[in-house]
Design a protein around this nucleic acid. Structure first.
Lengths: 103, 103
DNA sequence: TGCTCATATCAAATGTTTTTGATATGAGGT
DNA sequence: ACCTCATATCAAAAACATTTGATATGAGCA
């Protein structure tokens, strides 16, 4: 974890793309096999694979192999982490002094 | 708001860049004038202007003119919206039926 | 009005992400 | 072992975001 900003950015990058938001929406309905995602999205197989990788690496989605198939679902832990992080990043930090310069 | 996914992506795009995360971190210490941000970040004037625009357009940051200077701060409303949105996007939707196909 | 300074916008260069089609990997069934 | 099918990886192209330096805008002050 050599750069904390990069780590944090990775979490939100998962949510920056329309296709990935569509995928998340589908996963909100429960765990889905890649084949279901494929037929509902306007995406080729390698494109889906790419987006799923981004989602899984962000921690927001988790995958599970079952024989030939891969199933994906929203990770409760990962999404709780993302929510907490977002709250953190946007909450006034009481320890830093006010210092807003010029006037 | 012709595309809801695009709208949502815009909120998170603000958080996808290291420089913008650094800016947010500075703003967590309270409202800051652009000149303070400029001297603390490794960024030129037009670069800062670009990133502030992205942040303001996401709703997470708000700006206030005071004569020649622009002051920026984290928007409570905007960040509450982003948090709520993230929670929403990652919470199981009870209305959609399970349908995870193959087996 | 004209000058100065802070910020915004622009356009070109550069860097990064996404898409696409081709190929590789690896599991299950025969 | 071989075949088939699901998924992953790769490399090139296309799309998009960021950086940079130059110039425009617009507020305050003389």
């Amino acid at each position: 974890m050599e750069n904390i900003y990069e780590e944090h950015a990775k979490v939100f990058k998962a949510l920056c793309d329309e296709k990935r938001l569509r995928i998340l929406e589908l996963l909100r309905g429960g765990e889905k096999c890649a084949c279901v995602l494929l037929e509902q999205l306007d995406l080729g197989q390698s494109g889906l694979s790419y987006h799923m990788k981004v989602l899984v690496e962000s921690g927001i989605v988790e995958s599970r192999q079952e024989g030939k198939w891969t199933h994906y679902k929203i990770s409760e832990k990962g999404s709780a982490f993302a929510c907490a992080l977002l709250k953190d990043l946007t909450t006034q930090n009481t320890f830093t002094a006010e210092d807003n310069c010029c006037k």
